[in-house]
Design a protein around this nucleic acid. Sequence first.
DNA 1: TATGAATGAGGATTCATTCAT
DNA 2: AATGAATGAATCCTCATTCAT
Lengths: 191, 191, 191, 191
Amino acid sequence: MPRTKQQFEEIRLKSQKRILDAALEVFAKQGYHLATVDAIAKTAGVSKGLMYNYFKSKEELLHELMIGMMENMMAEFLPIKPGEKLTKKIVTQMINEGIDLVLENPKYWKMYFSVFVQPDVMNMIMDKIMEMLQPYFKALTNYFEEKGEKDPVAMTRYFSAVMDGIQLHCMIDPKTFPAEKVKKILIKQFA
Amino acid sequence: MPRTKQQFEEIRLKSQKRILDAALEVFAKQGYHLATVDAIAKTAGVSKGLMYNYFKSKEELLHELMIGMMENMMAEFLPIKPGEKLTKKIVTQMINEGIDLVLENPKYWKMYFSVFVQPDVMNMIMDKIMEMLQPYFKALTNYFEEKGEKDPVAMTRYFSAVMDGIQLHCMIDPKTFPAEKVKKILIKQFA
Amino acid sequence: MPRTKQQFEEIRLKSQKRILDAALEVFAKQGYHLATVDAIAKTAGVSKGLMYNYFKSKEELLHELMIGMMENMMAEFLPIKPGEKLTKKIVTQMINEGIDLVLENPKYWKMYFSVFVQPDVMNMIMDKIMEMLQPYFKALTNYFEEKGEKDPVAMTRYFSAVMDGIQLHCMIDPKTFPAEKVKKILIKQFA
Amino acid sequence: MPRTKQQFEEIRLKSQKRILDAALEVFAKQGYHLATVDAIAKTAGVSKGLMYNYFKSKEELLHELMIGMMENMMAEFLPIKPGEKLTKKIVTQMINEGIDLVLENPKYWKMYFSVFVQPDVMNMIMDKIMEMLQPYFKALTNYFEEKGEKDPVAMTRYFSAVMDGIQLHCMIDPKTFPAEKVKKILIKQFA
DNA sequence: TATGAATGAGGATTCATTCAT
DNA sequence: AATGAATGAATCCTCATTCAT
């Protein structure tokens, strides 16, 4: 008797998750190009072949991973519902969380950032991610508008850039970067 | 025959420069891992063998390149002599130049940034670069101290991070990023 | 419960046929080596596991298929009973049918031919097929003998070779090959 | 001092030839799909890498080989200059040579034939080969026209098909195929 | 009987590096 | 100083086959 559809589905999901987790770990430690499919499979405790059952290439594995991370991050980073407005409190929280997230797992974020900087290959991802970020940009633009900023669109881009810069430095040097002080500066300036 | 020696030296330097220029171009276009030694040699118009006369590996080529770029950038970006003090004017100039440099050649800077984000491989470079940045950090700390900032060290790191974030976004999206408006915000805030 | 046994047997035969049909289709389209077991199973609408219940390997599947095709073809191509003699009419029919069969399904026949040309792997099949062809060769030899040919054995081999050559060209270029004219030539020469 | 251009050219040609010879041998013995690049390189006594210096893929290697064989064969098989007319003597020679060539090296010709029967992959080769065969078809058509055949184009195609059929059977069973007798039949019929 | 997840050996391809000239 | 032919380890990916259910 074969397993039921549902049983198979469960098995599939479980294996996929193991592979994605392993990929995250290995990509984070070695970077995309130095990470071998072999190492990922070994880390996941599955065969290489299985990987290719679920992801049609190493690149697709990265894509899926990035999209997944992005979705998770968005959920934590921008905890508002569509249409809801940003408040000072929420922006404060975004700043704090955005920095803490990186400090907790600098390796993962290195991988994440590195993609933005890879030439060619990753353009597909960029589009997808930009699309996902739209509501976040909109909400911020709204927020800055209500705060009375003259050019809320520019301010939003400025804020995003600043946050990315901070996160970048947290990643590079999590030990000596004065995260707490910088948080305060940011909150004072933007929230 | 000292004359001949000098000529050899000239040829050496010229070839080296051609190779470094080619490497920069190819690394910038393809990223370190996707760039092949072959492509670099071809771009430089020399043989692979010659390349290995001057640089003992692909990695060394990258190192030399990065250090060189860093030195150039520092010269332009921080045009003060050791001991000299930063003025509002100079900081303003730093902000403007720092952004314009990236906008002029986003590809090169992508390569540059990507190194900071590569795990493992580039740890060696980091030390060297951090060392080179020391005087720049010091001068900025001094500057912020004189401007009356409470925590000038934190402010310096904040400023560096912000500048990197802006530059990152300029690189990613040089066309729609509101560089001029952001410059104004930065100058108002830091200069 | 003999009834149940019979039902099982029916199911078995039905599944086997579906798999063989699918195999024929996929082998014909992609060639033996490029055809995947997966594709065959999918085309047949069964699981890979089931396939291996009926055929112990991809190679056996090919064997069964070839033998089956051979039997079918023989039935159509040489519609005489053992011992019965070939007549002009029957030979004419063989020529016409032999060419039409190929023109109707050039892909299948390509697969069929390709086996004769594969080194190593398929030697096993050759023996089996040669054995099956014996009565056909005998009947032809008889026929040519009665027609007064000096060397009926050679003539038989010649006829077989010619037919295969014609069929090969029909397969390669079914559109522009002058099949009807060639039929006439053949009939005039051999029938 | 580097070698001269000419020296390099010689080395290249020599290596290429070794690889092509090896490829012919291995493809002939195992068939395209079962032949491994490794085996070819080993047979040629060079590294796998070198193969890829000269041929950008296994498939291209096959293409080059086929084209080369074709050219050689044409030179022997159709020893007339463009514009020159075919005579009975030349056609007789074509028949004899065409069969002897195959009998001498059935393996090579198996490889050659197998390509015509491979689905998909080899379409590029087909076009090239058809183009090369044009002058041969033209000369034959002319010949049959002057011989007073009613439909010389059809006759040409018939003749080609017959020759291929004979060659095919020579390949499959070089030992018992009555080559000499068949030659006589062919000569009587076509020359 | 029937399923499809899992395996892993095997194969094509790439590319930094070496070395004879 | 200069060349580019040659190497081979490393890597991605495929697919026939097995097996627990």
